[in-house]
Amino acid sequence: MRRSLLFIPGNNPAMLQNADCFESDAVIIDLEDAVHVNEKDNARNLVHCYLESLTEVPMEIVIRINAPDTPYYEDDLEQVVSEKIDAIMLPKASPASCFLIDQVLTIIENDKKMNKKIGIIPIIETATGVLQMGEIAKMPRINGILLGAEDLSVDMEVERTKKGTEIWYPRAKLAYTCKALKIDAIDTPFTDTSDNEGLKEDALKAKELGLNAKAAIHPNQIDIINQVFSPSEKQIIWAKRILKATEEAQAKNLGVFSLDGKMVDKPIIERAQKIIKMAQKYRLD
């Protein structure tokens, strides 16, 4: 039930220091694209020290490791996997790479005698990945999938546009796949950090298709993303009324009842419950 996930370069101490201030539901500490090959060791060390220093943070911590076809991913995992993190983000994911990371994580968790099971968030950023999405989503530890539209557009040899027509299909497929498996459908970042209106429009498009979260590449994008993917005040009021009416109906042993002239049944009640759960989680109620 994440709404926003903020990328933070793993080699940027100032950003790391303030990671807990940006109000994203998760931060993705990046050891991959944001870090030059010559900086990989430094970044790993920095992230390790940062994680060591953490006591309590209000957000999830996700680490984007280097892809398993690089020489870096094993060191990444060895240094950063601990009780302090929540998930590993896996670039250019395939069923095989998800399986591999699951195996490595299991070994590290056992070695470190961890009580926590680290999740995996694969990134779908190739045409093959899109076709394998259903299979990837069913792999162990997967609790969300991120669409990586920039690399996907390159793979598809199509222009990446603000309109986003070129990613309509993968977005829709992501929404259905994740909804079916009750995991997070995370939209690709909006790369123009100065265009707030464009960001809002883009996030709304993703939401309309059924995605429930969006990645951000700048902290100033978080507020808009959180607003778009949060239930509105009107929805919260509606949900509260539904749940109150449900309680009253149950007291009268009514299975189906009506409110404001509209029938209220199980799917409606479940939707109201979800809205309230989310509102409570994000202190919107």
């Binding site: 201030c21 940006f22 109000e23 902290p219 507020d223």
Partner: peptide, 11 residues
């Protein structure tokens, strides 16, 4: 300011 910390404080 464009600094996200400054903007958060302002918000």
């Amino acid at each position: 300011t464009k600094d996200p910390i400054g903007l958060k404080i302002a918000r």
